[in-house]
Write a protein that binds this DNA or RNA. Structure first.
Lengths: 208, 208
DNA sequence: GTCGCTTCGGTACATCTGTACCGAAACTGT
DNA sequence: ACAGTTTCGGTACAGATGTACCGAAGCGAC
C-alpha cells in the first residue's frame, strides 16, 4: 500500500550496530529501541519491524523476547517510568538544599531540559499518561510516576518554607505538569526567563 | 484527478429523511465517528475501516470525503477542539457570576463530568496535546484550546477577586489540566468532596 | 566429545492496511 | 426534458503487519 506522506514518518535507521548485544542485554536493547520508536511515532504506530531496525537486531528477536507487541509496549512504558522515577529521586535529594531564591530557576532549567535535550523522553512520559487513561494495565505505572513527582514537589515545598500539605504537593505537581505539557504542544514556547517568572509566581503562591 | 479536488459543502438536505446521512452531513458524521475511534484506540491505531464501521457508512465514503487518513485525523482533532472551545466559552460566560464560596464546587463538578460522562472527549483532548507535541500541524489547534482555557480561568480569577494576572491564569489552567490528567490516568481517582477540597486550596492560593 | 537447553535469524503466511478505480445513482442548473 | 457534475458504494490491489515456524548456532554440565 502506498503510504501517505506522514509528517511523523519514521526515518529509516542505518542500524549501525557493529557488536550486536546478545542474551538478556539484547532484550534491554530492544526495550530502549521501543522507547525511541514510541517517542517518534507513538505507541499505536509502533511495529516490530520499526523496533528491530532501531535496535539493529533481526525481526525475530523482537518476537523471541516479547510474547506480543502489546507486551513489548507495556514493558517499554514500565521501563521508561522506572528510569525516570529513579532520575526524579536523585533530583529530589538535590532539591532538599534549594532555597526560595533559586528554586524557580532550578525548576525552569529542569523544564527547559525536558523540552529540548530530553524531549523524546518527555513525550513518552506524557504519552504514558494518555495511554494509561485508555489501558488500565498501565495505570499502576502512571500512579507510581505521579507519586514520585509529588514527593519531589513536597521536598521543594519544605525547602522553600511552604506548609507541609499533601494538597499543595499535588497542586504543584499538577501545575508543573500542565505547564510542561502546554509548552510541549505549543508553537511558541516561552524562553527560560519567562518560565522562571511563571514558576516564581507558582512557588510564591504556595510558599509561606 | 477523478475525485473533486475541493468538495464544497452542498445544499442542505430537503425535508425527506433517509436512514443514512448524505452529502456534507455524512462528512460530519464521519468526523464524529473518527473522534469516537480516536478516543477508544488512539489516533495512530485509527483505520478507515474502523471509522466507516463506527459511522455506518461504506468504506469508500471515508476516502471520498478525506484526501487521506492523515487529513481525517487532523480534521477530527480540529473539530474536537472547536467543539470543546465553544463549550468552554459558554462556561466562561457562566463563570463570571461565580463566587469565592462556590467556585471550587463548580470546578469539581466540571472535572467530575470530564472523568465520567465526557471521558472519551477528555481522552481525545489530552491525546491532542501529546499528538501536537509530535506533529507541528496540530500545534495551532492545541494553542487555541490553551488560550480558551486561560480565558476561562482568567474569568474565574476575576470573579473570586484574584489579581488580574496573565501568569495566574496560566498557572490555574496548568494546575487544573495536570490534576485532570492525573485523575484520568489513575487507578484511584478522588471523589468529588476531595476534589473540591483540593480545588478550594488551589483557588485560595491565587485569590486575594 | 554428547546431551539438553536457550538463543538466534531467515522466511512464510494469513490478515489488515490505505487508497485507487469505476460504474451507477442522485442532484444541479437550464 | 436534458446534460453535467457530485456523490455513492462495491471491489481491487500492492504492500505492511503480527506472529508462527524451523533449522542452525551457542553454551554449560557431564
Amino acid at each position: 500500500m502506498p503510504r501517505p506522506a506522514n509528517p511523523i514518518a519514521p526515518q529509516p535507521q542505518p542500524a549501525a550496530k557493529s557488536s550486536a548485544p546478545r542474551g538478556a542485554a539484547r532484550r534491554d536493547c530492544i526495550v530502549d529501541a521501543a522507547l525511541v520508536v514510541i517517542g517518534r511515532v507513538g505507541p499505536d504506530a509502533l511495529t516490530h519491524r520499526l523496533v528491530a531496525a532501531e535496535a539493529g537486531v533481526p525481526l525475530a528477536a523482537t518476537t523471541y523476547w516479547f510474547a506480543s507487541k502489546e507486551a513489548l509496549i507495556l514493558e517499554a512504558f514500565a521501563h521508561a517510568a522506572r528510569r525516570d522515577i529513579a532520575q526524579l529521586e536523585r533530583e529530589t535529594a538535590e532539591a532538599a538544599d534549594w532555597t526560595s531564591a533559586d528554586a524557580a530557576g532550578h525548576l525552569a532549567r529542569s523544564m527547559r531540559a525536558s523540552l529540548t535535550e530530553h524531549r523524546t523522553r518527555t513525550v513518552v512520559d506524557y504519552g504514558l499518561w494518555v495511554e494509561a487513561a485508555r489501558r488500565p494495565a498501565l495505570r499502576p505505572v502512571a500512579d507510581a510516576w505521579s507519586r514520585a513527582c509529588q514527593a519531589f514537589f513536597a521536598t521543594i515545598l519544605e525547602a522553600i518554607g511552604g506548609r507541609r500539605s499533601e494538597h499543595d504537593a499535588r497542586l504543584l505537581t499538577a501545575a508543573f505538569d500542565g505547564l510542561l505539557m502546554d509548552q510541549l504542544a505549543s508553537d511558541h514556547p516561552d524562553d527560560e526567563a519567562r518560565l522562571t517568572a511563571v514558576l516564581e509566581r507558582l512557588l510564591g503562591a504556595f510558599a509561606g
